[in-house]
């Protein structure tokens, strides 16, 4: 029913259970939809489907983020302001991943955007030979050259054939004329 990621989460959720209950009572998770009784959590829903309770989460819950403080400010003739403050520590591994991603993105960006205005690819030496920026153009061009050479060959042959036929016709005509003359 669930992916391993969610399962791991459920373990974490079990450890955080008491605090989470408290949070639920305070109405913390804004992106969480509660259906039915609030103490029945999503992962047990398959067992207690009959009771009509399920918890659907649109976003990953903030369970990993320890809640520091929840402040409720009461203003007259208005709704309560609820301010939730939490703190988010990145682990060393995660931090490393973030920086790795940043570095790789930078390298990719340098390569990509630098090559976008490479003077060689814009130069006449490259473009005049048929280069179009892909790496395969050379082979395509070679194939096209060969194909056009063969087409040329076909045309030459056709011309030859036509010439031969025309020549034959002309000979026939001349022969006919000579016959007429001799008559």
């Amino acid at each position: 029913m669930t992916s391993p990621l969610l399962k791991a989460h459920s373990h974490a959720a079990a450890a955080l259970q008491p605090r989470r209950r408290a949070a639920d009572l305070h109405g913390r998770c804004p992106a969480t939809v509660h259906l039915g009784r609030s103490h029945d959590h999503g992962f047990t829903s398959s067992r207690s489907k009959r009771s009509g309770s399920a918890k659907v989460k649109a976003f990953p819950s903030l369970d990993v983020v320890p809640l520091m403080v929840t402040m409720v400010e009461h203003v007259e003739l208005s709704r309560d302001y609820v301010v939730t403050k939490s703190i988010w520590h990145l682990s060393d591994a995660t931090l490393k991943s973030v920086y790795t991603f940043y570095a790789m993105f930078t390298v990719w960006g340098v390569c990509f955007f630098a090559s976008m205005k490479d003077p060689f690819y814009d130069s006449d030496a490259y473009r005049s030979q048929g280069g179009d920026g892909t790496v395969h153009w050379y082979y395509d061009r070679q194939e096209d050259l060969e194909a056009s050479a063969r087409e040329e060959l076909l045309r030459e042959e056709l011309l030859e054939e036509i010439e031969q036929r025309v020549g034959g016709l002309r000979e026939l005509e001349e022969a006919g004329r000579e016959e007429q003359l001799t008559k």
Binding site: E143, E146, A147, A149, R150, L153, L154, E157
Partner: peptide, 12 residues
């Protein structure tokens, strides 16, 4: 060989 063949388009 296919440089002698007029009927072929691409030879790969």
């Amino acid at each position: 060989v296919y440089e002698m063949c007029k009927n072929v388009r691409y030879a790969t």
